[in-house]
Design a binder for these strands. Structure first.
Length: 396
DNA sequence: CATCCACAGGAAGATCTGGTAG
DNA sequence: CTACCAGATCTTCCTGTGGATG
């Protein structure tokens, strides 16, 4: 038994491919951020107010995913922290902590106080945060990453409260850095929030293919052994990611998974073939994961879509709902209303599992046309494996 | 050219879970 | 114990709508 474990362990230790895989993981923050020098400079010059103990302007940071927004923010704050000791900062990812309650709880916890996981009112948490800030006399920088996700779900109320917090505290000062992928989202904000949060703005352009190549080269020389990665593989990964709005994270993932695949098949070098496989595998894993964690009725709606799709025919909400009702009656389960089903279809669309678009068919009404956007076999696999209630339902 | 299909999707609130405070 | 809270999910009720068709 332990032979097997030893074998697996030694295969990782004596990897033929990787020198140090960590450098390719998404949460690794490199010592230098190539091609983001301008952004670093701009952000630093905003935050440099801290040097005089003043509150820096609230700042909006825009840029598509994988353009280095988070990395730059963390990098600048960490570097400043080392040089100046007169401020504190909190980083909150508002996709993970996607409720007002969690945001406040996270901030308070990082400040060093425990709060219950649930049960209090947000007003109470806000009060506690104020109290916590009044304990000491510092400048507090709050970084809210991916705030668009939060605002979409819960509105801009918390943002308003956070921007107003300076009027309630006297000893400390708070400054907010809001990071967003979605530029349009600013327009939907309450004008008061927009003006106070957007005192400064910083835009991150996507990386172009050359810049991506450079980044990949630097990282792969740290992560891979000599000669494993050829220049053409780098170029391919960069090209794929550049096509997808210059997402560096995507490019790095691609490179890492390609390496993992090469390793799994006991190859000594990574070729274009592994990159292609990696691309497929990354997408498949993402889809599987998303489906497996869906709520029960969302899964049922999805199953209805799979079962009623014949080739690439587009389905209407009504057709899907009819099949869904059949399924719930077979399973003797409750069913949700069509109103809810319509929202669920929209959710599946946003996750990229189906593609839905609203069409007007004149006399034949307004509806959504829905097609499955992923391989049905993966859908079935994910459904069957994630919930035993689907175990005996086969496609057809 | 008005009609009317087959829904879209907004608003408000109900129900339930899993919690706190005193 | 009571009173209360947030958040997820869902319902009920609703108004809105582009264009094929009679």
């Amino acid at each position: 038994m332990s032979d097997i474990i030893d074998e697996v362990l030694s295969s990782v230790k004596n990897s033929a491919v990787f020198k140090n895989r960590e450098y390719l993981l998404p949460d690794y923050v490199p010592d230098e951020l190539p091609h983001r020098e301008n952004e670093i400079k701009k952000l630093a010059s905003i935050l440099v107010q801290l040097y005089r103990g003043e509150r820096p302007s609230n700042t909006f940071v825009y840029g598509l995913t994988g353009t280095g927004k988070t990395a730059v923010a963390k990098y600048v704050l960490n570097s400043l922290q080392k040089k100046l000791n007169n401020f504190r900062y909190v980083y909150v990812n508002s996709r993970q902590s996607d409720t007002p309650y969690r945001i406040l709880a996270d901030i308070i916890e990082i400040l060093g106080n425990k709060v219950p996981f649930t049960g209090l009112s947000t007003a109470e948490l806000y009060r506690r945060l104020v109290k916590e800030l009044e304990k000491s006399e510092t400048v507090m920088i709050i970084v809210l990453d991916e705030i668009d996700a939060l605002v979409k779900k819960h509105g801009d109320d918390i943002l308003y409260k956070l921007t107003r917090i300076n009027y309630e505290i006297h000893k400390s000062k708070v400054s907010i850095i809001g990071i967003t992928n979605d530029i349009k989202f600013i327009d939907g904000l309450d004008p008061r929030v927009r003006s106070s949060l957007g005192e400064e703005e910083l835009v991150f352009p996507p990386y172009n293919a050359e810049e991506l190549e450079d980044i990949l080269r630097r990282r792969s020389s740290l992560a891979f052994k000599e000669g494993v990665i050829s220049d053409s593989v780098i170029k391919l990964c960069a090209a794929i990611a550049a096509r997808d709005h210059g997402d560096a994270r995507r490019a790095l993932d691609l490179l890492r998974v390609s390496g993992e695949i090469a390793e799994r098949y006991k190859k000594k070098i990574v070729t274009e073939e592994e990159v292609e496989r990696a691309r497929v595998e990354i997408e498949r894993d993402r889809v599987y994961e998303v489906i497996a964690t869906l709520p029960f009725h969302s899964k049922l709606i999805l199953l209805s879509i799979v079962q009623s799709s014949i080739q690439d025919r587009r389905l209407t909400t009504g057709e899907i709902y009819t099949r869904y009702r059949e399924l719930t009656s077979i399973m003797s389960s409750e069913s949700v209303t069509q109103r809810r089903a319509s929202d669920i279809i929209n959710e599946l669309d946003m996750m990229g599992i189906v593609s839905a678009r609203v069409v007007n068919r004149g006399r034949y009404g307004k509806t959504k046309e829905v097609v499955l956007a992923v391989d049905r076999n993966i859908v079935m696999k994910a459904l069957i494996e994630s919930d035993e209630r689907f175990a005996d339902i086969r496609s057809g």
